[in-house]
Amino acid sequence: MKTESKNVWRTLLALFIAVVYLAPIYILICVALKSPSDVSSYWKFPAQINWTNFDTAIHEGGILLALSNSTFITVCSVFLIVICGAFAAYPLARRRTRLNKGIKSFILGIMMVPPLSILVSLYSTMVQIHGVNSYWGIIMVLVTFELPLSVYLYSNFISSIPRALDEAASIDGCGPVRTFFVIILPQLKPVTASVVILTGIHCWNDYQFSLYMLQKPSMKSVSLAISSFFSQTTSNLNAATAGALLAILPVILMFLFLQKYFIKGMVDSAVK
């Protein structure tokens, strides 16, 4: 009886928190569906649903192009992050020499570097090697700064695979390189899901790198398209909001369907 009344309170409290957390999304939807001339409170759901904001976002804001640019950048980056990360993690997890320990702590140290602290020299280096306004430029930079997380996750995971498997393979005449491809690689599926999700979200949401690496309007990523839409002097906030809604829709939908993997990925990256 007592626990039941406690549970009612818990449910109420959880409901309150949920309402607070849904408020931003609710307002986003309301603004996106209102006509720009509608000056009622943001809290009010539009009396008449207005889809023209989405038209404006697509035709004037170039959201569809930005979505496809971001998709391309994210897919390529994540692919490289997975490949380079899994490869780099294998020797770091299996051969614990002094050199490799040093390299591992160097790689993990990069996770702490705020990328903007080397903005000036990174940007001027990219200008020199013609990496600005090119897809490979932004992809390389994203891969570099997301790679430490990937190496960290993969090397923790590989360390948890029993060494006896490697030894058995070596007795059967398998070299260390083949061992990686035949024994280790097929087992990396669950951790790869975590890597793809975590780094994929970061690449999709990136603003700080694309802000100065992609200045050509035709190459805009989603974040850039949204930010230029919001900051235009004659800004149409409703259309900009519709664009923002389109930009977060793919990630939110993915999260709703793959929730378990998203949360597992987060926990994996935090707990050794």
Binding site: I17, Y21, I25, V251, F255, F262, I263
Partner: peptide, 13 residues
């Protein structure tokens, strides 16, 4: 899930 959802949204947005 609702509390975790904003983590997916770009900080800019």
């Amino acid at each position: 899930a609702i509390i975790y959802m904003p983590v997916m949204i770009a900080p800019l947005i």
